[in-house]
């Protein structure tokens, strides 16, 4: 599904290299977790996959279903089935959440050559997803993310993921700033979409989220590269011993 080969990335216009020879594969139906200390380049990786313009790819490729997406604009990547749940979702004043959702869903449908959703169909889908995630209706009428709490913003990201139906979802520290109840709701949102057709890359600092979203694979990232790959037990080991060993090793 997602294949990253020998990726080298620096901040555009600066010399600072953040990702070095990073290689990673996420198979169809797989839930992969990336764990790593602060500053290891986890968020950068998620931004580069989604196409944020602040970074310069010096070498390497990112393939989605075998197609290199690095030359694509962020909206083209989204239409190709890529979703990024932001660590810090943006507030967009004056734009009602419903308006935004409809614009995004129809933009993607248009790029895929599908017909626009009718308003009743759109509302039906949003209501169903909102109920599932415990999102009150009045939140949907407010401007997108404006004045939302940290937990509400994260739930809104999962709502968007549910509605946009991506095949590959990257979750950037979705657990940060969440209390245990919100964490469970978010995890349920992800688990509900787990099937052989969808893949997830879950980026996190703590093992806690992985209690609720059981990963198939765990990668440890340090200083811009993957330094170890293992099963779910690796996450527990990290929880017990910390990242110390990997920071010096890298």
């Amino acid at each position: 599904m997602l294949e990253i080969n020998n990726l080298h990335v620096k901040i555009a216009g600066e010399d600072k290299v953040i990702l070095r020879s990073l290689t990673l594969k996420v198979a169809k139906g797989e839930v992969a977790a990336i764990m790593g200390p602060n500053g290891s380049g986890k968020s950068t990786l998620s931004y580069v996959i989604a196409g944020k313009p602040d970074y310069e790819v010096m070498d390497g490729e990112v393939l989605l279903d075998g197609v290199n997406i690095l030359e694509m604009a962020p909206d083209e990547r989204a239409a190709a089935g890529l979703f990024l749940a932001f660590q810090y979702p943006m507030e967009i004043p004056g734009v009602a959440t419903m308006t935004f959702l409809k614009a995004a869903m129809n933009a993607q449908r248009k790029q895929r050559g599908q017909a626009e959703l009718t308003t009743p169909e759109f509302i039906k889908r949003v209501n169903a997803a909102a109920d599932l995630l415990g999102i009150p209706k009045d939140m949907l009428r407010r401007p997108l993310n404006v004045g939302f709490s940290g937990g509400e913003k994260k739930r809104m990201e999962i709502l968007q993921m549910t509605l946009l139906e991506p095949k590959m979802s990257v979750m950037d520290e979705t657990d940060s700033g969440l209390d245990i109840d919100a964490l469970k709701i978010v995890a349920e949102g992800v688990n509900a979409r787990r099937d052989p057709e969808h893949a997830f890359l879950v980026i996190t600092h703590y093992q806690r989220l992985l209690d609720y979203i059981k990963p198939d694979t765990v990668h440890v990232m340090s200083r811009g590269r993957i330094v170890k790959t293992g099963g779910p037990e690796l996450a527990l080991e990290l929880e017990a011993n910390g990242y110390r060993d990997y920071q010096s090793a890298a």
């Binding site: 196409g51 989204a78 979703f83 979702p89 004056g94 935004f100 869903m105």
Partner: peptide
């Protein structure tokens, strides 16, 4: 904001659609 633009584009809106959306909010 570049970050707002990127956020909208990540959700599938083109650069122009994203700009129009943000401006309309403004």
């Amino acid at each position: 904001s570049e970050d707002q633009l990127f956020y909208c584009m990540q959700r599938g809106l083109t650069a122009e659609e994203s700009t129009a959306l943000i401006v309309n909010g403004f």
